[in-house]
């Protein structure tokens, strides 16, 4: 256990809504080792952000967690009281959000916000942190922001999109953290800026020896940065493998469909995509949640959730096709 930083086991998250319960996460298993860069890939509405919100315990009030555990350094997050949680958030985890414009408070300067973060990360003891400004300047310098002194006195609206996201990264790395969660950090940025921001995140994580969870819907980004990738569909982890292995040889029909529908730089057209759409979370299919869209679906798929099957080298797939010699169904 000692080398595992984060371990999410069989996590279920439901949302109470008018007319029922949305069963969004349906038994998510996810783990991150120390110093590892992990990708979490999936389409809109498949529960990527919900998983991370559960991990930070910032789910809305209407959410409930009927089942499951989240361990960070062997502490069960779901059982911590608010003081312990504040310590954990201050020292252990930090998150970079998708939209830097709404993640930054428009009425405070970058400096004020950054000083607060540094103060809180010192823990709940209330002790004043003496060298806040030095720490803040170092963080801004590390994200290669021009003129960090001036940056401390600027308001978020005075900065461009790429600079705002760098400021958010500076917030996340200002004090030492074990785990950096980047939730679609570059979706709102242009390609050339995306390239800069990603290189920055990767370099910083490697330099600091922290772990990284990169949440993205872009398979290309996951391939460039991460070492291991989880593919998520409708609240389930359906495939997990080392990044190079996953893109060379995807096993799950969903991953295969997804990879085939990505347009390639080399041309030659692309597949029609996957028919249908994500199931209604109020009434999800009882078996595999991908079954209504799956071209290989057969009898057991409609009955129960497929278990995670190891197909070698730590490559795991949640699909009945790979259980005791059903593989030939794919070619049939």
């Amino acid at each position: 256990m000692s080398e595992t930083l984060l371990d999410i086991r069989n996590l279920h998250v439901w949302f109470k809504v008018y007319g029922g319960v949305l069963k969004v996460l349906n038994g998510v298993n996810f783990n991150v080792k120390f110093g590892e860069k992990v990708g979490l890939v999936g389409e809109t509405g498949c529960g990527k952000t919900t998983t991370m919100k559960a991990l930070l315990r910032v789910l809305p009030n209407l959410a409930l967690i009927p089942e499951g555990d989240i361990f960070v350094r062997d502490n069960n997050i779901l059982k911590l009281n608010s003081k312990e949680l504040a310590d954990l958030r201050g020292r252990g985890l930090s998150m970079i959000f998708q939209d830097p414009t709404s993640a930054l408070n428009p009425v405070f300067t970058i400096g004020q916000q950054l000083f607060d973060i540094i103060q809180y990360s010192a823990g709940s003891s209330g002790r004043k942190v003496a060298n806040k400004k030095d720490v803040a300047l170092r963080a801004l310098r590390e994200t290669r922001l021009p003129d960090p002194e001036r940056m401390l006195d600027s308001y978020p609206i005075q900065l461009s999109g790429g600079m705002r996201q760098r400021v958010c990264i500076a917030f996340a790395i200002a004090t030492a953290r074990d785990l950096l969660i980047a939730d679609e950090p570059t979706t709102n940025l242009d390609v050339t800026i995306q390239d800069q921001v990603l290189r920055l995140i990767r370099d910083l994580v490697e330099k600091k020896g922290a772990s990284l969870i990169l949440i993205t819907h872009s398979l290309g980004l996951a391939r460039e940065i991460t070492e291991r990738v989880y593919v998520m569909y409708a609240g389930n982890m359906i495939e997990m493998a080392a990044t190079s292995v996953l893109f060379e040889k995807p096993f799950h029909p969903y991953t295969q469909g997804l990879l085939a529908s990505v347009p390639r730089l080399s041309g030659g057209g692309f597949a029609e995509g996957i028919p249908g759409r994500i199931p209604d979370y109020r009434n999800p299919p009882p078996g595999c949640r991908f079954e209504p869209r799956c071209q290989y679906a057969f009898e057991p798929c409609t009955k129960a959730m497929p278990p995670c099957i190891d197909v070698g080298d730590g490559h795991q797939v949640a699909c009945y096709l790979y259980q005791n010699g059903q593989e030939d169904r794919i070619n049939a």
């Binding site: 461009s160 790429g162 600079m163 242009d190 390609v191 050339t192 800026i193 995306q194 390239d195 800069q196 990603l198 290189r199 872009s218 398979l219 290309g220 980004l221 391939r223 460039e224 893109f247 990879l259 990505v262 390639r264 730089l265 080399s266």
Partner: peptide
């Protein structure tokens, strides 16, 4: 060239099409 070298890609065959890496600097 800068734009092409900034695109994240998925497959090896695409990597050949990328021009020599021009690191993107600055902003629009």
């Amino acid at each position: 060239q800068m734009l092409l070298s900034s695109i994240p890609i998925l497959f090896e065959e695409e990597a050949k099409l990328k021009p020599n890496k021009i690191h993107s600097v600055g902003e629009i």
